[in-house]
Simulated assay, not measured.
Amino acid sequence: MAAAAFVAAGPAQAQASSSGAAIPMGSGPGYHDPRSPFQPLQEVEGVVSWKLLSSVTVKADKSKVIPTFPSGVLALDKRTVKVQGFMMPLEPGDKQSHFLLSSVPTSCSFCVPAGPEGLVEVRSKTPVRYTLDVVTVEGQMAVLNDDPYGMFYRVTQAVPAPR
């Protein structure tokens, strides 16, 4: 299943301001329902912050959204980083080589809890067992300016990392 289906269905929508200026995308890293049985993610030293990732702004241009990344996000491009989040499988089975990490847990298997600023696409070296718990991976970050699936972030060559 392509990541595009998840991003296209997400709650974040690009909004054009009357001045044409870039404005924040969606609702930041997503909404953590206080009724959720899962605790919100805590900031961990050495792990990329969702606050940083969600600081992207966007402009709507005809049929696509153009992200503008702050310098702190651009500095992550092509670097080895650790990211943490809640796993959203993109493949069948209990082990995943291609999945999304979300800044908030999903509350519905058909819903996306965040827009592209609250998701990281992960391609792992070896399959990672699916879990409802927080997953931390380490790999090479790509900051995506014009991804055909609407993603802003991708981590490749990922391996599970201790938190």
Rank of each mutant, 00 (worst) to 15 (best):
V143Q: 08
S49L: 09
P24M: 00
S63D: 14
P67Q: 03
A21D: 15
R154Q: 15
D146V: 01
M141G: 01
V137W: 02
K78V: 07
F86I: 07
V120E: 13
E138K: 14
D61Q: 12
V83P: 02
V81N: 04
G46F: 09
P24F: 08
L52H: 08
P29E: 13
M141Q: 08
D147Y: 04
F99Y: 15
G28K: 01
T106F: 11
L41A: 05
S49G: 04
L100M: 14
W50V: 11
V112L: 04
S124M: 04
V47I: 08
V81Q: 03
S109Y: 15
Q42I: 04
S97M: 09
W50R: 10
K78D: 15
A60E: 01
G28R: 05
D146A: 11
L41M: 12
S103E: 00
V47T: 10
G93R: 07
E121I: 01
P148V: 13
D146S: 12
G26D: 07
R163G: 11
V83F: 09
L144W: 05
P116N: 13
R154W: 00
L119R: 13
K51N: 13
E121G: 01
D133P: 00
L74A: 09
P127S: 04
F99D: 14
S63L: 14
E121V: 13
S63E: 14
H32Q: 07
L144C: 00
A158F: 05
Q42S: 11
L90A: 13
S49H: 10
P29D: 06
E91M: 07
V159S: 06
C108W: 03
Y31K: 02
D147R: 03
M141W: 06
A75K: 11
T80M: 01
P162V: 04
L41Q: 15
P40A: 00
S124E: 07
L144H: 06
L119P: 14
L74W: 01
V44N: 04
Q39F: 00
F99I: 07
S71N: 08
M141N: 08
Y153A: 10
Q157Y: 06
Q42L: 09
P92H: 10
V83L: 03
P70D: 03
P160N: 09
W50T: 09
G72H: 02
L144T: 05
L41P: 07
V135H: 12
P37Q: 10
S27E: 02
M25D: 11
P70R: 04
H32C: 11
E91P: 08
P67K: 04
V135Y: 02
K62F: 15
S97N: 13
V83S: 10
R123K: 15
S71I: 03
P116S: 14
G20K: 04
F86Q: 11
V44W: 00
V122G: 12
W50G: 00
V65N: 03
